[in-house]
Amino acid sequence: MTTTPVSQQSLIPTNDPTAVTPRPRPGLRAVLRPLPVPGAWPRRLAAGAQAALPLAAALLVWYLLTANDVVLWLRFDKVPGPADVFDTLKGQLTSGSYYQDLLASLRRILLGFGLAAVSGVAIGMAIGRSRVVQALVRPLIEVARPIPAIALVPLAILMFPTGEQGIVFITFFAAFFPVAVSTIHAMKTLPKVWEEAARTMGARRLSVLAHVVLPGAMPGIFSGLSVSMGVAWICVISAEMISGQFGIGYYTWQSYGLLDYSGVVVGMLSIGILGWGTAWLVERLGSRVNRWLPRSAR
């Protein structure tokens, strides 16, 4: 996207006063490619400082509560303080197994979520656009949807050759429904005129799907993907706690078993940070794909 310089705008061929200049989009383009905008770094630093402030406040409260062994109905006297947790974290950061756990969880998330994203969009589109598929598949989805993914653990252990595959499956199962359902809704709200225009220009089915329906549904699909990523983390961690070897959920549960409470907190915080990172990625990707949306709707 380019911004038309003012000098060019005087050459507007029509006298149309309502033409809108493309608005600059600071920060949006910053992520997945190099930053072309000078002055973007100070802005991002300011944004970073803004995010750090409430986190620092929470840290301070945590420190005050634990350092003074506060017991106010809630008992903070046994809760590890920031210093203990920091020490444990330091120890973990120098041990290979911590990274192994992080990577194991990330891999499961990305596999499960990736499979769910692709199949959720494909099946959602098929249901949204075909009455036959809708009649055949929708009941299956509606029955399966209320089942908590974690309730599948026993069957997953029974059916899958390795625990690893079972965990990925559970993650996939949980992440699938938000994507599929939001895709189905996106199909229904797509303006008809886009597809009709393409058809009168000679577009066949596949071309309409690839160039009209899919890009037009992306805003809806991405709101499903955001929800789905959150659900995927909940399920991968729970599954790891029940049946995993490795993984940050497994580490957290194991620390609890060893009464290593600061280890538990290190695990929790690691999950929080990983989850935040993946959510941010989905968000960024979404705003790039959907940057044609008017700002209010984004």
């Binding site: 038309t4 060019q8 029509t14 149309d16 006063p17 033409a19 200049t21 044609w292």
Partner: peptide, 17 residues
């Protein structure tokens, strides 16, 4: 008559354009 507007998104153009 749309020279200079090749890379504008429809949302950035007026109704006539």
């Amino acid at each position: 008559g749309l020279e200079g507007f090749f890379d504008h998104l429809p949302g950035q153009l007026s109704g006539g354009m």
